[in-house]
Each structure stands twice: as C-alpha cells, then as structure tokens.
Design a protein around this nucleic acid. Structure first.
Lengths: 376, 376
DNA sequence: CCGGATGCTGCAAACCTTTGCAGTTGAAGT
DNA sequence: ACTTCAACTGCAAAGGTTTGCAGCATCCGG
C-alpha cells in the first residue's frame, strides 16, 4: 500500500534512479524534473524506505542507546540530550532498557547491531572483555565506564567523591558509611576507591555497605545497617539510594541531617524536591549524552561500514582516535548535610528530637564546590 | 565484515535458502544439515540481518513508542512494561521523545513508519484528524486518548477525578482549583469535565487554571495564582505539578495540607517520597503499556503489511476490531489532603504558623478508594 | 517393477533503494 | 564543422534475505 520509489517514477515519467537522486542528491537533477518528482512524491505520500536504503548504503541513520534502567531519573536527561543531538544530524535514537541485566545487555547489542550505525552503551554491567568483543560487531561508545581502546565518556565521580568527602570531613564527620552500587558498575568502583583514599587521608573511618540495588528501595533497606554501623554521615552511590535511605532512617527515628548527614550522587531533579533537599554530586548527564552522540557520529561518518564496491578491504583495524572524555562534576550543598552531632553518633535507642527548620544553607542558590578535569 | 547468509552457506556447503530455512523454518531442514549450518553460523558469528528480512517479509519485529516527555516519571513504568511485553514476543521497542511538541510527534511517526510494524502513540498532543491520517501510514495504537476508529487504551481519569473531588468535598472543601495540563491533552479535558460535574453536584466552586506545562516548574509557577484564588484545595493535572505547587506554596508560607489540600494524578513513585506524601489518583501505567503492545501485535499479526505475491489486494479497510480499553484508576489518600481550615482560606497576608508534624493519616498502608470501569 | 508420496534441497524472483557507468542532449570553444 | 564539456538521465547490479516452485532421492504399497 505505501508508495515506493517506482510508483513515483511511473507517476512522474522518469526512471527510479532520478527519483532516488531527487532525494539523496538533488543537485544532480534538473530543477524542473525535480519539481515534478517532488510534486508526485508529495501527492502519493511517498517516503523513502530507510531499511532498503540501509541495505545498500550500510548506514541506517539510527543510533541505539542501551540503558540500565529508564525508571532511574538519572537517565532521562541523558536520553533527551542524546536524542536531540542525534536528531540535529538526522539520526534517530532507539532506546532500550536492560533492567540492570548484563545478559539482556548483550542480547540487545546483538539485536540492535544490524539496525543501527552505532550503539551508546550506558552504564554497562557486563564485563570489559565482552564489551570489547561486541565492539567488533558494531561501533560502540561507552558511557559511565572506561574501556581501553574504546571511545568512552565518563563523569569524574572520583573528584566528586573527593569533594563530598572533604565536605563531610569539614563538618567534623569521622565515621562515614559508603553505600555502594550494583555489581559490575564502574562508577561504583571509582567512588569506592576515591572515598577510601579521602577517608584515609582525612583520618576517618569508612564503612562500605554493598553491593546494592541502586534504587530507593535499595537505599531504604540499608537504614538499619547504617544505624548499626554507628556512622554520622553517609555517601550513597546515587541520589535514589540516598533518598531511600533518608526515608528509612526517618522510619527508624533518625533525623537527617541532625543525626546523620547524607550525600547523594547525580543531582537528579527529584533531589531538589525532597525534604530535606539533598546534598549531592552533580553529574553532567545531558552533556554526556550529547558528547557520546558526537563521538559516535564523528568516528562513524569517517568509516561507513559495508560500503559498496571496495569489497572487504582493510578498515578492520583503522586507527580511530578513540577519545576518552571525562566530564566535570560538582558538589551541590543543600540541606541533607550538617555538622556532626557533638555527642557522637546516636545509639539505637536515641531520642527523637523536635524537628527544627530543615534548611541550613539558606534558601538562595545552592553552594557549589567544584572539581574535576577534562582528560582525553 | 559481518558474516552474511551467503558466508554461512559457503561454509556449510549448502544453498543460502537452506540456511535461511534453518533459522526461519527449522522443521523443513534435515536435522543433520541443520546442525552443520548452525555450527557454521555460530562459528562465523552470523546473525540474520533483520533489515533485509523486513524488506521482504514486511515485518520488522520492531515497534515504535512515542512519548511526550521521558523525563516525566509518569512514563518510564509504561515504557518498561511495553518493552518487556514486546520482548516476550520477540519484538524490540524503539522509544522516541517529542518534548511535548506536536510537530516532532508527526515527524517521528513518519520517520518510524518504515522501520517498525506499528507505533504506540502515547499522550499525543496533535489533533485527532492528524492521528487518523497517520494511522493510514502505519498501524497505530493510541494511549491516553480516545480516537474513534483507532485502537486506544486510556485510564479512567474521569472516575479518578470524581473520587478525588468527592474526597475533597467530604473534607469540607468548597473552593477548589483545578490545574489543567498542556494544550492538546485529552486527559486534561477529561479531568476538567469530570471535575466540573463533581463540583457542581457537590455545591463547590471550581477555578480552572491553565493550560500549563505539566512539570514541577509548571506547578510551582501557579502558587501565586492559587493563593490569590483563595481556594482551600487544589487538584492538579499530574503529580509533578502537584509537587511543584506544594513547593511553591511552601515558599509563599502556605502549608500543605493545613492551609491548602493538594491532590495529584498518576501516583508516580516520587509521590511517596516527598513530604507531605501526596494524595493522588493512581493510574495503571504499566498495564497500559502492556495492553497497548498486545493490541498492536494482535491486530498486527493478523494483517501483515506488504506481504508478497498477493499484490495490492484489498486489506485496506479490513474490519479490525479496534478495541478501546479503559483501565481502572484508584484514589490513594496520603498526607497532602486534610479537612478544610475552619476559618476559611487564608488571605494573602496570612500568618505563617509553626510547622507541625506532617502526617495526618498515620504511617500505615495508604487508604484506597476505588473507582473506574473497564469498557470496550 | 511401477506410481506416488515424502522429505529435503536448490533455483530464482522479489523486496526497495543507491550508485558507477554510460548514454543523450545541447551549448560552448576552436 | 568538429571536438570538448557539462548537465542530466537511464541502465543494471548490488545489498541480504524469504519463499513458491521444481527437482531429486528414497521409501512405501501394490
């Protein structure tokens, strides 16, 4: 039923190749002819079949974006940024969700491989070696992970973590817990390493709890452990866990930030809406999405796969630049952190105090401490 | 570089058609041969090219999902449900975000049309007539809107709104504001209609504010207007606006629910995390996603487009069942609603009172009032 | 020993488009 | 008038797959 290039050719009395060129290389066809073809195409509602085009050009003009969990508010800004960046270059983004499942991740790459020109692998949970292997099947850009030999864009969570720890240390905290993230997360490992170093050099004791589901539920489930650990401050793998933890602590009668300070990572919009507002490390997710698309498309436009004629000639180990970009992070101080309680960490049977005003840092612009570098 | 069906054929010493059948109709090929082919395919890392297959079968095994705004937490559960339902039937979902832009919506449908077997149009902002027109280009299932002649799945927000209004009326509210949603939203119209009826029959005065951006920002911006309207209760188009409004009211010194009661719609997970926890109308978003996929695939498997041989024969106005499904909604009562203040609505210069404990309804399971019907 | 059924495989067309090459036309240059 | 050139257009192959049809053995019943 849908009109094909042949229908348009018939209707406008030209050969199909002329119709094709009318769309893909307009300057090669007589303006008059072009007008007629265009009119007929419009009339018939013709739209070029991208799949058929892809078959011969080797370029689908689609990008795959594989995400661990769309429901995690960390990702949508990244998705939107990637999408709009791609659309500007006449590419479409196909988003797929893996539910934090490494197996689904691999399957998805395979399934997407032939329908897209490249895949953005966001917060992968699978192994580096598998990623490298998959990258031979389809161009890959990895987000939130460093894989040697592959283009990557990461956030400098190391620096962010350092800033957060220093903030906590400045407030007098010496017993700090770290809520780590899901198994397989590169970010989680980075955070842990940086937190460990900062704690040691600050003379603080760091208790690592995890790995955990990176959700509110995952954070909330740790409240009891946090209390038992007797810490005065907590750094969470992400905001969702931090918020869940605050809920959980609240249920246990522990107030944030009076009894326990909590710092998240990501600065999702939600973190501005909870009470207390969350102190957190802001990660430039939108920028990451844009950058990843740029990296993919740049290296992609150079070497179109499956080009015709040339026939299996080289190009298998082209020395692409494989840039590795690391984006700055920022500590955003809000209301979930405060000076360590003078009387030390509250015991399991601590009294619940009358809630005071939440805000410590005033209602103005959030205080910002900056860090991070741009590497290559 | 990627292995094709021809490579496998060569390697296993059979014709390409046999390789093809090994994958698409295994029972037609000798088990021994099949084994050999499979082995070679595995060896070469062959994966059938879905695009090429689509060219001839007319089925891509992809479905498109067009969403107004991925960053709105209302949608991710729907997306995930649709995705997992689709994956169970060996389909992939391509998600696209329109940024609430009707133009982008139309373009996206066109762009997706040839690469998917059908499109799920979620919360469309464009006109019904345009939707009908597009549905001739690619099978469509509409979510959150009723379009005659097209398969639709909607939430019974009318009933939900009724329940919310009754809840408010029961609490003694007689001056109520309605924060409407974005222009072009079917849901917003439904809510407005139902709220109008309920207000009239309950002897309450309803002030409609809008249309608005369906975001926290959109809600927050209305705080001043809400105060000036002198209402004691507000029903918002969605939770995000409700939460934004609560923030805004807070900044104005108005307490929720003591001074003003606020009800949202959607029951996004966020609504359980804010303080006060939001009273809201729960909409079955995941069920909607699943149902929509089912409806698309069912009607899709019956009439495969572009089948070979038959040649332009009929099937243009097949009497498909075009089911219209409406899903139940539920009022979930939490902490953002309370009895109307005895002394009437506070004026613009009301005193700020000392904050009391937020929870009124106790920390147990949320009270649930149910409503809604399943139509067809 | 023959007719036919059965089970498997090969052949080739078709899906829709792009693109190198060659052909046509007309104008410009010499 | 003849070549050269440019501008345009047609031809046909190619890309990877599916599938109706036909061919070939083999096996069974008679």
């Amino acid at each position: 039923m849908p009109a094909t290039i042949r229908d348009v050719a018939r209707a406008s009395g030209v050969h199909i190749s002329t119709v094709s060129r009318t769309f893909s290389a307009p300057h090669l066809v007589n303006p008059e002819t072009r007008g007629r073809v265009l009119a007929c195409a419009e009339e018939l509602g013709y739209r070029p079949n991208r799949a058929a085009r892809a078959l011969i050009t080797g370029r689908t003009h689609n990008i795959g974006l594989i995400i661990a969990d769309i429901a995690n508010p960390f990702f949508p800004p990244l998705i939107k940024a990637a999408e709009s960046q791609a659309r500007q270059r006449d590419y479409h983004v196909f988003v797929a969700d893996t539910n934090e499942d490494p197996i689904a991740e691999e399957e998805l790459v395979h399934a997407l491989a032939k329908q897209v020109d490249g895949v953005l692998l966001c917060s992968p949970r699978m192994s580096n070696s598998l990623i490298e292997q998959l990258s031979r099947e389809v161009p890959l850009v990895v987000i939130n992970r460093q894989v040697t030999g592959l283009p990557c864009v990461t956030m400098d969570v190391g620096q962010g973590t350092r800033a957060a720890m220093e903030h906590l240390l400045d407030l007098g905290h010496r017993r700090i817990a770290l809520l780590s993230g899901p198994r397989g997360s590169w970010t989680s490992r980075e955070i842990r390493r940086a937190a460990g170093v900062a704690a040691r050099s600050g003379g603080a004791e760091l208790t690592v709890l995890g790995p955990n589901q990176p959700t509110e539920t995952g954070g909330g489930a740790l409240a009891e452990q946090v209390r038992r650990a007797g810490v005065t401050a907590v750094l969470a793998y992400n905001d969702l866990m931090a918020i869940g933890l605050i809920e959980g602590l609240d249920a246990l009668g522990l107030r944030v930030p009076q009894d326990v300070s909590v710092v998240g990572i990501d600065d999702i919009t939600l973190s501005r809406l909870t009470r207390p507002k969350l102190t957190t490390v802001a990660t430039p997710t939108a920028a990451a999405g844009r950058t990843a698309v740029d990296m993919l498309l740049q290296h992609d436009s150079v070497a179109a796969r499956g080009s015709r004629g040339g026939g299996r000639s080289g190009a298998t180990d082209d020395r692409r630049t494989t840039a590795q970009v690391m984006l700055r992070t920022e500590l955003v101080i809000r209301d979930s952190t405060a000076a360590a309680p003078a009387d030390g960490p509250p015991g399991p049977d601590a009294q619940v105090v009358v809630p005071g005003p939440h805000r410590l840092a005033g209602p103005g612009r959030p205080t910002v401490a900056t860090g991070g570098v741009v590497a290559s």
